[in-house]
């Protein structure tokens, strides 16, 4: 197969991954709010798991980073559907923002 000359496949894959993580983690969050009481989900406990254990750090990165790309992809292509034809500048701004946010997340969590 010849290599496509654009990076849309990459952006679309990240969008797909983002949709997946949003679907799974949102469900997880909603279900935890239904089944666990407030003390189980206290800030201290959550912080201890997500910011101090490796598995917690990894899972919060997996939950957040693809979601940024998924959301920004939807915003960018949604603009196109709404007949706002953003040029390359806006495209770079959109995905650049997702990139900055991704790096910031990784830096903050690790």
């Amino acid at each position: 197969m010849s290599k496509p000359k654009h990076i849309e496949p990459l952006l679309w894959s990240l969008f797909g991954a983002g949709g997946m993580t949003i679907a799974f983690f949102m469900t997880g969050i909603i279900l935890s709010l239904v089944f666990f009481d407030a003390s189980t989900l206290s800030y201290e406990r959550m912080h201890a798991f997500f910011m101090e254990s490796w598995i917690g750090r990894l899972s919060i990165i997996v939950a957040l980073v693809p979601s940024y790309w998924g959301c920004i992809h939807r915003v960018y292509h949604g603009m196109h559907d709404l007949q706002i034809h953003a040029g390359n500048g806006i495209k770079v701004l959109c995905y650049g923002f997702a990139m900055v946010l991704s790096i910031a997340t990784v830096v903050v969590v690790i």
């Binding site: 197969m1 010849s2 290599k3 496509p4 496949p9 990459l10 679309w12 894959s13 797909g16």
Partner: peptide, 19 residues
């Protein structure tokens, strides 16, 4: 086809001479 394209896109880096 998007899914296939994304897969081929990723593979094109792992096997650059394939095509």
């Amino acid at each position: 086809n998007k899914a296939q394209g994304a897969q081929d896109w990723a593979l094109s880096f792992l096997m650059p001479r394939k095509g």
